[in-house]
Design a protein around this nucleic acid. Structure first.
Lengths: 347, 347
DNA sequence: TTGTACGCGTTATCAC
DNA sequence: GTGATAACGCGTACAA
C-alpha cells in the first residue's frame, strides 16, 4: 500500500511559458502551421519534450468542433467476414489520419441503438455500419449530420452501401454444383428479413432457371444465421421425401451446423454429398474434406466503405450533396473437395 | 444533387431559454441532480424533447475532466477467445455506465503504440489490454494516470492481470492423453517470448513428471501462433526418428494447421493420432472428428478484468493504491473424439 | 432550490 | 510571423 501518485497534467500554456512564446504559437507548431519561425518551432519542441507535454484531444475536439474518429459498428465481431472488413476500414482511416473505434452490436438492436447514441454524442466524424437483421434506424446520426456508410446489408435511409454480390455468388456456386454432377442442390439461407439472405436465395434460383429448371420450393429452408438452426434445416431436408444431394449454405457459421449433421450421418462431403458455403472462413480449408466456399472480398468491402466515408466527410465542406452510391463487389468461388462429385468414381 | 442540409446544433443554453430557466438548471436536470424542483424538471425535459437537444459529450468530458469510455486493445480480434473476452468486458462496463471501444492491434507493436497514443490523448477512463507478443510498453498510460488491466498475458509494469491457468490446463490435457493410452504426446507451443506459450509448455512437462517420466526435448516445438508454422512443426515431429503418437497444440489457430497436416497424411484424430488443443473455438466440435480442447473461461476473464478496472477507476479518488492483482482462472478440459484412443479397439 | 460566473484546454480571429 | 483574446459547450462552486 502506497499513496497514489499524483499525475501532473501539462497544458499548452505551460509549454508556452517554458519556450518563452505564446500559447498560440505552441498550437501552431504542434499543428504544423506554415507561418512559424523555424527557430521558435525548435524551442517549442524542446519545451514539449522537456515537459512531456501531450495534447488534450478532448479540448481539441471541442474547439475544432469535430473529431478524427470513425465508429465502425459491427453486427457480429466473431464473424471472420467482419474482422476482415474492419481491417480494410482501418487501413483507409489510418492513411487519412482518422482512428477507428470498433463497436460490437452483437445483432442486438438495443446495443446498436446505444452505440448510435454515444457516437453521436461524442461527435464522431463518421460511421460505418453493418446493420442488424431487423433493420436499423440511423435517423439520429443523419439528423446530426454524421455521414454513414452501410456494409454487407443496405439501409432504408439513402446512404452509401458496399456489399458483396450475393446474387451472382450464389448463382455461380449453384451452377458449379450442377456442373459437378449434383442434381438436387438445396439452399439453406438466412431469415427472410435479411436482404443478404434473400439475395443468396435469388442467385440460387437463377442457377436453376439458367438450366431451364424450376427451382423446387421443397429444397429451400430459411434459418437464422447460426449453426444450430442450420443443422436442423439440413436434417429436415435430408429426411424429406425427395432429399437433396448437395447444399448451398448461406454463411460459414451455418456451414458448421451442416458439417456436424453430415458427420453425424456418416456423410462425407465431396463423396456422399455436395457442399458449398458462403464466406471463406479461415477454417474452411482445414476441415475434412476442405470446404468449397464463396469468398467475399471482405477487406476490399471495408476499404471501399472507408473511401466512401472519406468522400462524404471531406465533401461535407462543399456545396453539393452526392447521391448515395451502392457498390457491389464481385464474389469468387473457391472450389475445394467438398463440392466435388467426380471423386466418387475415382475412389 | 441537392444542397447539403445544414445541421442545427442545439446547446444547453437554447434549452434553458425555451424552458425559461438557467443553463445550470438544465444541466442539473440532465444529470439527475437531486436538488431540483420536479415541476421545473418537467419543463426542462419538455424543452429538451421539443428541441431534440442532445448533450455534447466532448464538452462534457472536457468540463468533467474525465470520460466514460474504456479502451479494449486486443492483439487479435479474429481469435474467438478474444471476442468472448470482449463480451465479458462490455457487459461489466455497460452495467457500470461505461462504453467500450475496441481497438485491434493485430499483434503489431506499432499499431498498438498508436492506440496507446490516441486513447491517452482522448483521456479514456481505463484500458484493458491483451499485450502483443514482444511485450508492450504502457508507460505512456501509466504516467497519464490511466488504469490498465492486462488480459491473457502479463505485463512488465505492475498492473492487474487476468488469465486462464495455462499450466494446469496443459497439464491436465497431457495427463488425459496419457490416460487414453497415448504414450508419446508432443507439444507444439507458441514463441518463447510469449509467457502464455511457455506456461503451456510447463504444464505439458509437469504431466510427464507426474508420471515419473522425463519430458523429451525432441517432442517439443516452438512456432508462432499461426496455422502455417504449426503445420510445419507437426510435420517435422511426425517425420522425426521417434515420432509422437499424439499432440497438445497451444491454440486453436495452430490446431487448424495440425488438422490440415493430419488430413494430408490420412491420419484420423482419435484413431491414428491423439489431439488436444487450447481454446474451444466454435468450430472445434464441428470438425471430423470433434476436437478435444482446453477451454478457457474467456467471458469470465473479460468480466473479471472489467471488475478490476472498475475498482481502479473508482479507487482513483481514494487515498490508497491497491497492490496489483494477478488472477488465474481455471481451465476446463473438453473431451471429444480427437483425443480418444479406445476407439481403435472398438472400430 | 435556483442563478451567476467561471473555467476545463485548445484553436481561430483578429490586430500588431 | 506572433500574441492577446474570445469562444467551443458544459458542469459546478458559490452566492442568493
Amino acid at each position: 500500500m502506497r499513496r497514489r501518485r499524483e499525475t501532473v497534467i501539462t497544458k499548452i500554456k505551460d509549454v508556452a511559458e517554458v519556450a518563452g512564446v505564446s500559447a498560440a504559437t505552441v498550437s501552431r507548431v504542434l499543428n504544423n502551421v506554415s507561418t512559424v519561425d523555424p527557430a521558435m518551432a525548435v524551442r517549442v519542441r524542446e519545451a514539449v519534450d522537456k515537459l512531456g507535454y501531450r495534447s488534450n484531444g478532448v479540448a481539441r475536439s471541442l474547439r475544432r468542433r469535430r473529431t478524427d474518429v470513425w465508429a465502425l459498428i459491427i453486427s457480429d465481431i466473431s464473424n471472420p467476414f467482419f474482422t476482415s472488413v474492419a481491417r480494410g476500414v482501418e487501413d483507409v482511416a489510418q492513411r487519412a489520419g482518422f482512428s477507428v473505434v470498433l463497436c460490437n452490436s452483437d445483432e442486438d438492436p438495443d446495443k446498436e441503438a446505444k452505440y448510435f447514441d454515444v457516437v453521436e454524442r461524442e461527435r464522431v466524424a463518421g460511421v460505418i455500419l453493418s446493420p442488424n437483421l431487423v433493420g436499423s434506424d440511423i435517423s439520429l446520426l443523419i439528423s446530426a449530420g454524421i455521414p454513414v456508410v452501410a456494409v454487407d446489408r443496405p439501409l432504408r435511409h439513402p446512404v452509401d452501401c458496399v456489399r458483396g454480390d450475393s446474387v451472382e455468388g450464389a448463382r455461380i456456386a449453384t451452377r458449379h454444383l450442377f456442373e459437378e454432377g449434383w442434381t438436387r442442390p438445396a439452399c439453406v439461407t438466412g431469415p427472410e428479413t435479411a436482404e443478404t439472405a434473400e439475395q443468396r436465395l435469388t442467385g440460387y434460383r437463377q442457377a436453376f432457371v439458367d438450366r431451364g429448371l424450376r427451382p423446387a420450393k421443397s429444397l429451400v429452408r430459411h434459418a437464422d444465421f447460426r449453426a444450430g438452426m442450420a443443422r436442423e434445416s439440413v436434417a429436415a431436408l435430408l429426411d424429406s421425401r425427395n432429399p437433396p444431394d448437395s447444399f448451398l449454405i448461406a454463411n460459414s457459421t451455418m456451414a458448421l451446423g451442416a458439417l456436424e449433421e453430415f458427420a453425424h450421418r456418416g456423410l462425407l462431403p465431396g463423396r456422399d454429398i455436395g457442399l458449398v458455403a458462403f464466406d471463406d472462413a479461415p477454417w474452411a480449408r482445414f476441415v475434412n474434406p476442405p470446404m468449397s466456399t464463396v469468398r467475399q472480398r471482405a477487406y476490399e468491402i471495408g476499404a471501399l466503405a472507408g473511401q466512401l466515408l472519406l468522400e462524404r466527410i471531406q465533401g461535407a465542406s462543399g456545396e453539393l450533396e452526392l447521391e448515395p452510391k451502392s457498390e457491389l463487389l464481385a464474389t469468387e468461388l473457391v472450389v475445394r473437395a467438398s463440392s466435388r462429385r467426380a471423386s466418387t468414381s475415382t475412389a
